[in-house]
Design a protein around this nucleic acid. Sequence first.
DNA 1: TTATTATATTGCAATATTACGATAAAACAA
DNA 2: TTGTTTTATCGTAATATTGCAATATAATAA
Lengths: 107, 107
Amino acid sequence: MGASKTESFSPEQNEMASLFKALSHPARIAIVDYLLKVDSCICGDIVNELPLAQPTISQHLKELKNANIIKGTIEGTAICYCINPDTMEKIESHFGTIRQKLKNKCC
Amino acid sequence: MGASKTESFSPEQNEMASLFKALSHPARIAIVDYLLKVDSCICGDIVNELPLAQPTISQHLKELKNANIIKGTIEGTAICYCINPDTMEKIESHFGTIRQKLKNKCC
DNA sequence: TTATTATATTGCAATATTACGATAAAACAA
DNA sequence: TTGTTTTATCGTAATATTGCAATATAATAA
């Protein structure tokens, strides 16, 4: 074994797990942090910001893109990445729902 | 290689990544969902709720505990698990901050 | 055309995660 | 004590992730 039993859980549960998995690596958190820090959707220089090799960062960007956490648009030779606000809002509202449900608890 | 370069990132980035990693598996999402669904902090029957063997669930519960997402208190022979609202609020406020920062963006 | 620049893909080694059978431990009941 | 119930741990196989050198691709410049 070793593969996670995806088919045993609901689509919603799998979707949330995928979103969190995309955010479960410090390099990917750092990428999101950087995209938030710079004024606009800066192209290119993510590689210079992080202590990782270019293929590694490309791989992390791909995972963030696949999870719809960031969007990339081709801008000449470079690619301009920025955060997808819809996905962020989706996650925030998930925790908003959790907070609501916790209000009726005894813990 | 293969180990993630934890030391290259800030404590905050590593902490958020750890929280998301704890939530990055559908079984652990399902555990949180179940703890939210039941009226109070129900003891024991998480094993009967999920299609996973008892050692596997115990392992998932351990990870959620280590991440401070759930708390467990001994209740006789059983252990009573419930969600830690502080950690949930921490994550929610993280995305609240992200939303604020996105307001000033062009994307 | 050739060169340059930016990003993606391939291939692989190191490491981590997932799942579970077997077993242990802890609390209680008879 | 022995038995029962509940949860944790150990050991291990299957699979996934991480990181990077080498290489490929794509867009532009000279």
